[in-house]
Design a protein around this nucleic acid. Structure first.
Lengths: 354, 354
DNA sequence: GCTTGGCACTCATGCCAGGAGAGTGCTAAA
DNA sequence: TTTAGCACTCTCCTGGCATGAGTGCCAAGC
């Protein structure tokens, strides 16, 4: 579908205007707002064409026009001029990221920053550690009879812990021995490789293996498996969405907020868009989820050492200032990538000194 | 203020009725509902008295009456028959708590359970570790140049971690040595005692102390201090509040939700009510916080080994079924206490074997 | 053939009046 | 002290009406 230049300009200004104040746009304001010198009547003719094409619609006969999903889609695809972010803004963001070092904090901070700047809801999916993360250290600590606390530290400094049940009581010395075995054998390996290796060990082990090793393998296995099911989506600024009158209906809000706490659908959506690099935009029903049917989602992947490991983005009504939001999401993804990678890179240097 | 028996019965049924369906109650329904055989006209006289006393009010002349805060207060103080929870319900709750072992999970589970059963918002304040918790183990791990990951494990199995900046690079051996020093010196001590001891060590140390000890003390100090500022309130089921028409106004909701994310006011409120044992109820403005002005909060303390370490509760509109909610909050507090203590008790047994 | 002014038409919105319904307060009688 | 009765008040709903915004269409103009 291609529009002539005039229709395009009109659609563009209509959408910009509608994004700005959320009211249907009539032919008169459009005639004044757009640069072209045309009478409202002419505009009306063009509007009729645009409506025919499914790019705009009117809520009722005597209201102005509002963009349809298709209209927004064409807008973002063909006529959007992404506004680069102010350098001073970028520096402010950089500062924000510099003040945290722990990956978990960085992720929460990214989500918070997104929601604050865009005045929308920020979402950040935690890195897919399983694939990327490498094993650094494991600790086993006796909590009480047969209950052992396993602490797993990955190369990037993330700490995961879990209490597991043991088949019998173990002395502290045994646990230390087990941990040492692990730390000596697997440090630096990918978690996924460690997992596979563990599976093999369990099969081969049988009786000729020291019982303590058996325990260690079993415990680590349990701990690793637990890691997969962690709930790994950070949502913030939910209440920002309450400021949009088009979402003012409590029922709609409820659906949205439930989606935020369930997280499942959001994770699927982010997952789906993970393969493609760069900023991706879902407008209204494009996401395929009922709760998001009146929302747009802008996402971007972030990376660690050149590998995409997670997604972040914002959620708002379909009427969001895409021009700015896109570059904010983009920059935030880059900054988060940088912050996460820099916490990795020095380690590489260090380990090369060994 | 004391009421005659008839007025009391009427106030009670009025409140129960209003809690049930949220509509102002008129003299006719009240005449039918209450056991006493009285005409609506008589009821009206009594209502006028109750209004004089500030126990009920009417939204407008031709609406029925609704309870005031004072009315609710008298209701819960003098005429509430707390409904004990069904034993089968209690067992279901117990199962829920048994399926988690990690303290953090227990706390999240408690919050979730509260919100699910009451269909309100559940809040659980994390245990005040500082006072109660005892030190078990510390680990220092090199992340990258001058960045050290500190992992602090308390006796109850909680794991806290933090990245700190060091004044120079340290070898892994040095870090292990530092950790050993700590673990040998302080295991089993109260965190607060350890903190004080650390302060002293820093002062005395000066130059004659090994630099590595100095580092260890400094790092631990940093890690311990960080622990104090952790955000320690788990909120769940926020969106349940959207189902109450009296909170249906988006502006009110926004205030509430902002309070949930800020958490500060809620923590203060819980803190204030911590000293008193047992269930405590704040009705409407009694809490003293604007965002909660149309809400009631029901709280109860939970304990570990007989010591109150935290608070939990629910938040809803003033019109909540107190009879049931009170016992649910009470039971949940007891169950959480039990679950947290049992994860502690075996340890005590074990350590007495030493 | 595109553009435009004019005009009839539609629809949301706000306002006012009127009727129904719910519930009250007051008074006088039981 | 209780109750029946009655006037009164207030909300809510409805219909009517004017207003204003904006459209669609047509015929004239460039």
């Amino acid at each position: 579908m291609s529009l002539n230049a005039r229709a395009e300009v009109l659609l563009k200004t209509l959408i910009e205007r509608y994004i700005a104040d959320g009211q249907p746009v009539g032919s008169r304001v459009l005639a004044r707002q757009t640069g072209i010198d045309l009478s409202p009547a002419t505009i009306r003719n063009v509007m009729a064409d645009l409506e025919e094409l499914g790019l705009v619609s009117s809520p009722h006969t005597s209201a102005g026009r509002i963009p349809t999903e298709l209209g927004y889609r064409m807008f973002v695809d063909t006529m959007l001029r992404v506004k680069p972010l102010d350098m001073s803004e970028v520096h402010k963001l950089e500062q924000e990221f510099l003040s945290h070092q722990n990956p978990q904090q960085l992720i929460e901070s990214a989500s918070h920053v997104l929601s604050e700047i865009c005045k929308l809801t920020g979402i950040v999916m935690a890195p897919r550690r399983e694939e990327q993360a490498t094993f650094r250290q494991i600790d086993f600590i006796n909590l009480s009879s047969r209950r052992i606390l396993v602490i797993l530290v990955t190369q990037d400094g993330q700490v995961h812990n879990r209490v597991i049940a043991a088949d019998r009581d173990y002395s502290s010395a045994e646990l230390v021995q087990a941990a040492n075995y692990f730390n000596e054998t697997y440090t630096g390996d990918y978690l996924s490789d460690v997992k596979h290796a563990l599976l093999k060990e369990i099969q081969q082990a049988s009786d000729d293996m020291q019982r303590i090793m058996n325990l260690a393998v079993n415990m680590a296995q349990q701990a690793f498996n637990a890691e997969e099911e962690t709930d790994d989506l950070v949502v913030s600024g939910e209440s920002n969405l309450m400021d949009f009158p088009e979402l003012g209906d409590v029922r709609k809000l409820r659906k949205l907020f439930d989606a935020f706490t369930t997280k499942r659908d959001l994770l699927h959506l982010l997952d789906r868009s993970m393969r493609a690099g760069g900023v991706k935009i879902f407008i209204g029903s494009e996401s395929g989820y009922d709760a998001l049917s009146e929302c747009s989602v802008v996402t971007a992947p972030y990376q660690v050492d050149g590998q995409i490991v997670g997604m972040l983005g914002v959620i708002g009504p379909t009427r969001i200032p895409y021009e700015q939001v896109i570059s904010i999401v983009d920059i935030t993804a880059r900054l988060l990538s940088g912050a996460l990678s820099s916490s990795e890179r020095p380690h590489r240097l260090e380990s090369s000194e060994h």
